[in-house]
C-alpha cells in the first residue's frame, strides 16, 4: 500500500497538484486501500498495475492539473541544451587561433628576425562554425526542453515543443545575426573576452526567444483548456 501511495504522491507532485488537494486524495485513497486490503484485495490490484497513470487520470478528471508557466525552469532547460553545441563551436573557433593549431596548420611568417608559424582562419570558416554551433544549440535546446517537460508531465509540452520547433529558427537566426554583428564590430577577434561577450549576447537573444515561445504556448494551452471545459489555470 505504501508503494502505491508513494507513487501517486510522486505523480501529483510532478503534476504540481496543490498540496491540499494531493493530501485530500491521498487520505481518501489510503482509507479505501486499507478497507480493500482488509477484504483481501491488494493495493496494486485495487488501483491497477499503473499507479502513475491512475493518479494522473484521477487528478485530470478532477481538474487539478494546472498548466504552469514554469518559465525559469523551461528556459534553463533550453539553455542547458544549447551549451554543448555552442561550447563546441566556440572551442573550435577559439582553438583555430591557438599556437598549437598554428603549429600544425599554419604557415611560417617572418616577424623581425624570427620566423613564427601563424594561421588566420578565414571568415567563412568561422561563420560556418558559428552556424553549426547554432544548429547544435537548436537541436539540443529542443531535446532538453522536451525531456524536462516530459518529466514534469507538463500539460503544454506538445504545444511548447511545436512552438519552439517553428519559432526557434527565427530566434536562432536572430541570435546568429546579432552574434555576427557583435563579432564584426570587434573585427572578429578571437580574444576570450570578446568571444565570451559574443556568446552572452547570443544566449540572451536565445533565452528571450525560448521565454516568449513558452509563454505563448502556455497561454494558448490555457485558452484551449477553457474552451474544452477542463483543467484549471
Amino acid at each position: 500500500m505504501k508503494e502505491v501511495l508513494a507513487a501517486c504522491r510522486r505523480t501529483w507532485r510532478r503534476l504540481d497538484v496543490r498540496r491540499t488537494d494531493a493530501r485530500a486524495m491521498a487520505a481518501e485513497l489510503e482509507a479505501d486501500l486499507a478497507a480493500a486490503e482488509s477484504d483481501g484485495t491488494s493495493a496494486g490490484a485495487y488501483v491497477g498495475n499503473d499507479p502513475h497513470g491512475f493518479a494522473l487520470e484521477w487528478a485530470s478528471a478532477r481538474g487539478l492539473i494546472r498548466t504552469r508557466v514554469a518559465l525559469v525552469s523551461t528556459v534553463l532547460a533550453g539553455v542547458l541544451g544549447v551549451i554543448p553545441g555552442a561550447v563546441c563551436a566556440l572551442f573550435v573557433a577559439y582553438g583555430m587561433s591557438s599556437e598549437a593549431f598554428a603549429e600544425t596548420f599554419g604557415s611560417p611568417e617572418q616577424l623581425g628576425d624570427t620566423s613564427v608559424m601563424t594561421y588566420t582562419p578565414p571568415s567563412w570558416l568561422l561563420l560556418g562554425l558559428y552556424t553549426l554551433g547554432a544548429v547544435f544549440a537548436y537541436v539540443g535546446a529542443l531535446a532538453v526542453v522536451s525531456a524536462w517537460l516530459s518529466w514534469r508531465l507538463d500539460q503544454a509540452r506538445s504545444r511548447t515543443l511545436h512552438y519552439l520547433l517553428l519559432g526557434m529558427p527565427f530566434g536562432t537566426a536572430a541570435a546568429i545575426f546579432i552574434a555576427i554583428v557583435f563579432a564584426w564590430t570587434r573585427d572578429f577577434s578571437t580574444d576570450i573576452s570578446v568571444v565570451g561577450a559574443d556568446a552572452v549576447v547570443a544566449t540572451a537573444v536565445f533565452v528571450s526567444c525560448i521565454a516568449a515561445l513558452r509563454l505563448a504556448a502556455v497561454r494558448r494551452e490555457r485558452i484551449a483548456l477553457v474552451l474544452a471545459g477542463g483543467g484549471s489555470g
Binding site: E28, G48, A59, R62
Partner: peptide, 30 residues
C-alpha cells in the same frame, strides 16, 4: 465512500469493474 461503492457494484454483479477506475469517474461527477 469510494471503496463502499465498489462493494455495492460488486454485490449487484459488477465485480468486473477495476476498482481504481471509479475515482476518475467520481472526480468528473464531482
Amino acid at each position: 465512500y469510494g471503496y463502499e461503492m465498489t462493494r455495492r457494484l460488486s454485490a449487484r454483479g459488477l465485480d468486473v469493474v477495476g476498482e481504481g477506475s471509479i475515482y476518475p469517474v467520481l472526480g468528473r461527477l464531482e
